[in-house]
Design a protein around this nucleic acid. Structure first.
Lengths: 346, 346
DNA sequence: TTGTATGCGTTATCAA
DNA sequence: TTGATAACGCATACAA
């Protein structure tokens, strides 16, 4: 077992000083051609690589980005990570990941763990619990310690940092307008309870779309699902609610669902009730996951471009890290959605 | 902006030495009750936290695990990460992630980046390209430098390290036996080309299951898909191949697919050809992803327990890290699969 | 051209 | 009970 070699060892072997070795390896003109070659040959032979930790301590930079997300087994978030990682790696950064599991406490703990020198900055999306609690002290403290944060998707005005968001409102509107144009007369929305900002925005987009087309909103067509439930029978509860919705409102001919799973479930329930898709019922979901592309029928969705979101977030963060500007300013970048038409709409 | 406070600053403020502060904060009996309280109060006020990087340099331990996987937008891998993260976090470790994108070069670069002090050990699954090239020097070098590796899923005998694998062969066998018991007479398999070990093992399981039930294998029922294709029309090519398979072998009444996507596609193509599932055709897939649970009909699968794999891998690695034993020994843990019956089988 | 000394933040050893 | 010093691995200002 040959342990990693250090400058010190090389210096000792070659009977020169550590400084000489260090300079030689960095091609300093100070060092004679001769020793430079000698040192480099030796270093190569022993496969010398500078120790990242020592460099981090010296430079007070870790070249590492901390990512905190609610969960990783989720198509959108893994897409975002992919985007972050690609940009980060290209610029010589690593990514370290912490999962909050939608829990406030775990979010705080994870951030504290990483903020103590392990990383240069954060890219994160808040947990549901944090959103509910509206306690943002950990973000603000981190920022006030001089560590930049870029938030994405689930963001909140109270925090002064760069943000990358989806135009949830506009995206939802696009979807509902599409349904209207496709002659849907009674369009329902399946959404979440209001405390998640994206759910609220998407619902608002739905309402605005209807209003602008002089269609009255009917409260009975707005189904708010309680997604705090994460139990096994979560889906079954949803199915039951949807069944009731369709039975009580048989005239529904269009559904906009704020996420993929809701949309898929809508299709499943509707088909069980004998509705044909898209002939009797057209469905559009929000999110661009795997289910949409492989369901039967395939699902028309409002695509979020998670990878792009991650890439932009990484660029914003790295820019901030590498160009410490005098005065503070924060960007909010909106990533446009795209309506991806598939078989569930006409 | 209040920067992070260090021992030095606290020492200066309180007019004591750094050593005293350090000891006081660690509750050393050496320090008088009095100063101890004073220091701790001050530290609390200024929210002192030891700098991880400095600790890492001193202890020569980063308390960080490096994960290298082929891709992250993949249900199985994100499940594994979830499992790793949970165990790691519980034991005070962070995880840092590198993606190989199935590329040998990126795998090597990523490993080198992390191996220079950033982490204590690796948990990884090899890229397809590495498997193809059969070049394992980067793993062996890492190991010979004293950095432990735990490999999972895609493993190879040539490397001396702990391994966590799925019993691919047995799992495949279970699936095929199920089909046989369900009265399938002509069972096809949709698999990958041989260079991916899991594909080979699963195919072998299929063959053994048939043999043990005195059923002759028919080479025309073994479809080997070239999954090096990652282009857009990948699925379309597959659909075409499957269509041909079914048309040329109309008697096929059971299909075992080595992954979820193949299985879903089989169902789609079969239904287009007028076959009813599970009446005319029964389908079983390998992998426990989201598609299986939400497809119509839902798909019976051989469940891999990705999270468990990750958890076990993390435990093995941490055990190795914390109990440096004199002599080397390597464990290979097999995680049992489970046949999850859903609607695609009788 | 080479080497010495210092510092990054921490802990540990030993001396006071 | 407290403090000075060295060490972890590296880079660099400055001295030789």
């Amino acid at each position: 077992m040959k342990k990693k070699v250090t400058l010190k060892q090389i210096a000792k072997e070659l009977d020169v000083s550590i400084a000489t070795v260090s300079k030689a390896l960095r091609n300093s003109k100070e060092i004679s051609e001769d020793t430079r070659e000698k040192v480099k040959a030796f270093a190569k032979l022993y496969n010398y690589r500078p120790n990242n930790i020592a460099l981090s301590l010296k430079n007070r930079k870790t070249k590492t980005i901390g990512i905190i997300i609610p969960e990783i087994v989720h198509h959108f978030f893994s897409k975002v990570i992919q985007g972050i990682e690609e940009v980060a790696n290209k610029k010589g950064y690593n990514v370290i990941i912490g999962l909050s599991n939608e829990s406030f406490d775990k979010e705080v703990i994870n951030m504290e763990m990483l903020a103590n020198g392990s990383i240069d900055g954060f890219i994160l999306s808040m947990s549901k619990q944090t959103l509910l609690k509206q306690d943002y002290h950990h973000f603000n403290e981190t920022i006030s310690q001089g560590m930049p944060i870029v938030m994405f998707d689930r963001v909140v005005n109270e925090i002064n940092c760069d943000k990358v968001v989806v135009d949830d409102l506009k995206g939802a509107k696009k979807a509902v307008v599409k349904l209207i144009e496709n002659q849907c007369k009674n369009i329902a929305i399946i959404t979440t309870k209001d405390y998640i900002s994206v759910g609220r925005l998407r619902t608002q987009g739905y309402i605005e779309a209807l209003n602008e087309h002089n269609i009255d909103t009917q409260s009975e067509l707005i189904l708010k699902v309680d997604d705090k439930l994460v139990s096994e029978d979560y889906i079954e509860v949803l199915e039951q609610e949807l069944k009731t919705l369709f039975l009580e409102n048989p005239n529904i001919d269009g559904v906009f669902a704020v996420n993929e799973l809701y949309a898929i479930t809508v299709m499943k329930v509707a088909r069980k009730l004998g509705k044909r898709i898209p002939e009797d019922l057209q469905v559009i979901g929000f999110t661009d996951g795997v289910l949409s592309r492989h369901s039967t029928p395939t699902l028309t969705t409002v695509c979020q471009h998670g990878k792009k979101i991650g890439a932009v977030a990484a660029e914003l963060l790295i820019e901030k890290l590498e160009n410490e500007s005098e005065y503070e300013y924060f960007k909010s970048v909106v990533i446009e959605t795209e309506l991806k038409e598939r078989e569930s709409t006409k």
